[in-house]
Design a protein around this nucleic acid. Structure first.
Lengths: 336, 336
DNA sequence: ATGAAAGCGCTAACAC
DNA sequence: GTGTTAGCGCTTTCAT
């Protein structure tokens, strides 16, 4: 039992070594390279260590190995259910790998993000960037210094894992077509959003191919309020179907529509995106697309950890995760 | 520019010292004790450090100071909006103090919690326990080893910050009374939940004092499904008002009631708790209590950091945060 | 105000 | 298989 500056009592490798009658290095080996030490000796050491309540000092270990056993997850907003799921996934991956997760919330500010990444850099073995507001260049820069994987955004030369939007938008379009809709308007989310761009393009491609007429309104904030404001633009050229950037926007659209006396889904069908929990609590329940958010976080984190372990990524082909359409009450047959 | 094992390029204090023509210790001082070094020298050192892109190695620093600059936040479920808010608050406090936040999600398991706390112990300067499933004894144990503050739970001898339930329940009761309700049933949440106990007791005290009749049903899971199941018990002894453990339960109750042809709020009033975002999206919008969740996390974290800085807490009087009632559409005058 | 030197607790060569 | 010896990068006495 030696005591440290802070006043904390700490058992060190030396205490264990002494009591076990072996050299400190042997104790170290017993924990980090169990193979390279006599089985009985190892066992004895472990027993004594347990008795003494020995816990390796992570900082000291890190100092000599350059590996801290920590992964940083940085995202814009934990309060957003979408990211909360991602965090959970990442947490599981860390847990599974014996890693500790460090969380940084940027609250949408690129500067803050930059600062947090900077601070984290020295303390972690890898980084997962979730809803990055940084430029591609800045991201690549960071990737040069530390293993890094980006979620839901494609940055050339940097490993990323993303939700496969194209088939998702295609499914939505098919669904609408089956219900007899011939024109749809897309309510766009934040302009800076990579996801918005992907959704729009996917929808455009699908509608074109399947012969639907497509309009676009917005951009609006990705919130209920945003959705509400979009309705006046929809009103200028009404369509029987609306596809919203995400669930919140869809809910806003529905509320506004309802206020105007337009019934959903009888008069117009509305589709959301993300399969957020509120989707099934509102009236009507939302037709939406479920993205594998948990898996996104999980594979993102575990890929990052793999990189940290030296698995230099050969092909930086983005990993694409599949989605599924969840048809609920907000979509119905078009009135003929 | 010296290179480290991992292959990372790192600028050390020595590199800066050499280029600045001073001793390493001076560089160190220039950063940690700016007062104790000649102003000009300090300036020169800082300039050179910046040029060289010097970043202090946190592990090395921690090794000699015993302070890691990290705070651990452990909670059951990030996916729960209540905790998400707490995390945000804690994150802000950390940010503000130049600390890094480590997040551990226990997914409701006391063992997992124990393990995560254990792992974190060595890496952080303080811990915030949010929805702890550990026993009071276990918590006190941890508090002995490391600065620790508990959120929304009272553990004798351990600093805690909690939502002030009593006035909250009193406000609910008053609200109901004003609307002419004379009997209310409480739908209890998880038995193990400290918050549930407090809410129940607060409600009991208030109803007694104000002369309302109180029944209790449950416990049920703190979910929509849980709320739905509770309705059959309510049905056995109907009351004109229902107070639910939280918003989710309240929503479940409303849905079930609606299914049964009982109208909310015309036939029965329902009150939730937490002011979760969905509360204003459902129909009818939920009357509920807003707890200062963000503040909870924020003061919890900053108190923990204060402890870490040596502010040995004198009185361990729990900090109590105020709430406010948000009256919306799910409560109305009792039918006479 | 600054330099020199001794660690913090652990891992990693290198001997034996 | 195990002991010895250097450090990892920083802070911190103790001199000067």
């Amino acid at each position: 039992m030696s005591s440290r500056a802070g006043g904390k009592q700490t058992t060190t490798i030396y205490d264990v070594a002494e009591k076990a009658g072996v050299a400190p290095s042997t104790v170290s080996r017993a924990f980090s390279r169990p193979g390279r030490v006599n089985a009985e000796t190892a066992e004895r050491i472990r027993t004594i260590a347990a008795e003494l309540g020995y816990r390796a000092n992570p900082q000291a270990r890190a100092l000599s190995t350059t590996r801290t056993g920590m992964l940083a997850v940085v995202l814009a907003d934990v309060t957003n259910p979408v990211f909360a799921e991602v965090v959970r996934g990442a947490g599981r991956a860390c847990d599974h790998a014996g890693y500790t997760m460090l969380l940084a919330e940027t609250e949408e500010s690129a500067e803050k993000e930059r600062a947090m990444v900077d601070r984290a850099l020295g303390s972690v073995d890898a980084i997962v960037l979730s809803s990055s507001r940084m430029s591609d260049a800045a991201i690549r820069q960071v990737a040069k210094v530390e293993p890094l994987v980006v979620l839901n955004r494609e940055v050339a030369g940097v490993p990323c894992v993303l939700v496969d939007f194209e088939p998702a938008m295609r499914r939505i379009t098919e669904h609408l077509l089956e219900l007899g809709h011939r024109q749809v308007t897309y309510v766009a989310g934040p302009e800076a959003s990579w996801a918005d761009g992907m959704r729009w393009r996917g929808l455009r491609a699908a509608t074109e191919e399947l012969g639907l007429r497509l309009r676009r309104v917005g951009p609006v904030a990705p919130t209920v309020a945003g959705g509400q404001t979009a309705v006046v633009d929809w009103d200028a050229h009404r369509t029987s179907a609306v596809v919203a950037y995400n669930d919140m926007v869809a809910i806003g659209v529905i509320r506004r529509l309802t206020t105007l006396g337009v019934r959903v889904p009888q008069d117009v069908s509305v589709v959301g995106f993300d399969n957020t929990p509120v989707g099934e609590l509102v009236t009507p329940a939302l037709t939406t697309v479920a993205a594998p958010l948990r898996a996104l976080g999980e594979t993102g984190a575990s890929n990052a950890l793999a990189l940290a372990r030296g698995a230099r990524s050969r092909a930086t082909e983005p990993v694409r995760l599949p989605t599924r359409l969840i048809a609920r009450g907000s979509t119905a047959e078009a009135r003929s």
